[in-house]
Write a protein that binds this DNA or RNA. Structure first.
Lengths: 208, 208
DNA sequence: GTTTAAATTAAACAACTGTTTAAATTTGTA
DNA sequence: TACAAATTTAAACAGTTGTTTAATTTAAAC
């Protein structure tokens, strides 16, 4: 299931990504994709079979290398807390530079309508959870992290905080005076990342 | 801008809420709403003017009383941390029993397509933030809470954690063996709520 | 240069979209 | 009962939807 798409297919995938992220899957027509990609409308069916299969292809195209980055991180020689912090940075930078596909994932694949296409996505999430689990258990064995945290709920806190911020972009841009894209992206890279790291650190270390 | 809808309108709104939450706004046709509500397709235009205006009406219909509940909480005689915990419980129970509309809010109103209809929603969020702010500042003055937290980012952590969990419902149902609705809802009410409370408490109190 | 396969095109397909119309029915009022 | 207003209906509207077709162009192989 490796992604070997040709140039034309990649061109279509990139346009589809933009439009799906902006208008949603149902809100985007094949004609709109074809127009923006400057191809004939029949090419989508020709290369991908259908609009649904185009979405599947897009998912595969965009989620192949995150797994490798995570495995590399696990093998670095770092303290558990440093690994957690780096994991958070990795998530945020990855998602930030691929906002399109993650917006689509967040929207389309959490709706009841498309629950069948989950296999690839579910495997990705399970892998992510295993990586996080191994870091936290290492920290617990070393006596650094407390042991009464529910590990599967930490990912929702990390990703949920980021997504909720990003999904309400215009609200926070207005509230925090982040009127340019640069200001907004920089705030995510510094303040928001720090907030999440601070939160997870407190959760893992604080003794009640 | 009070919600004075008649029985027929409410009937339509409730069906629309179900379908919008399941299939999304674009994925739901007026004919589907009419069929499920057992009315003629022209009735939607007759009562609401258009499909867009139906969505607006639904938003108003569902977000009128949360504000009052928050104000009541603020005036209770409780310690800041207790207020925070109650606030978290209030959010989760409110959203849990109105999953439909919040799913719609999360999806439709965070897409670039519908950024204009935000006024009502934005006011709601600003009010929520002010309530949280007043509680935290009270705790800071009493020397209970640390002072280097970014208050506007706490809501994303609370709501984001919950939403990310709920938006990936089937994944977590499978992972945590929550195969019935009751098990799932109960897990939210106990474990997930506790996790969020624990997280926010650690964030507000932990001294680094 | 000829042959064969791949890529691209315009056109048509049937089904579905939101909305409007004008007629029919129900309801409330005097 | 008679009248007027509100409600409900079926039908039609003009567009858009995803997909398929058959013909044409381009590229590759020999």
């Amino acid at each position: 299931m490796t992604s070997n798409f040709n140039d034309k297919q990649i061109q279509i995938l990139q346009v589809a990504e933009t439009l799906f992220a902006e208008k949603g899957f149902d809100g985007t027509s094949i004609r709109a994709i074809a127009k923006l990609a400057q191809i004939n409308i029949a090419m989508v069916s020709y290369y991908f079979g259908s609009k649904e299969r185009l979405l599947e292809a897009l998912l595969i195209y965009r989620t192949t290398d995150l797994k490798k980055q995570l495995e590399n991180l696990l093998q670095e020689d770092l303290q558990p807390l440093e690994k957690i912090n780096k994991l958070i940075e990795l998530y945020i930078s990855r998602i930030s530079s691929n906002k399109g596909i993650y917006r689509i994932l967040h929207f389309e694949f959490s709706s009841k309508k498309r629950e069948q296409n989950l296999e690839v996505f579910t495997e990705l999430r399970k892998g992510n959870l295993k990586a996080l689990e191994s870091i936290i258990k290492e920290g617990q064995q070393k006596g650094i992290f407390r042991k009464d945290v529910i590990i599967p709920l930490i990912t929702p806190t990390i990703l949920g905080t980021f997504f909720h911020f990003h999904m309400n972009k215009s609200f926070f841009q207005n509230l925090l005076q982040l009127h340019t894209e640069d200001l907004y992206n920089n705030y995510i890279k510094t303040n928001l990342t720090q907030h999440i790291q601070q939160t997870i650190k407190a959760l893992l270390i604080y003794e009640s």
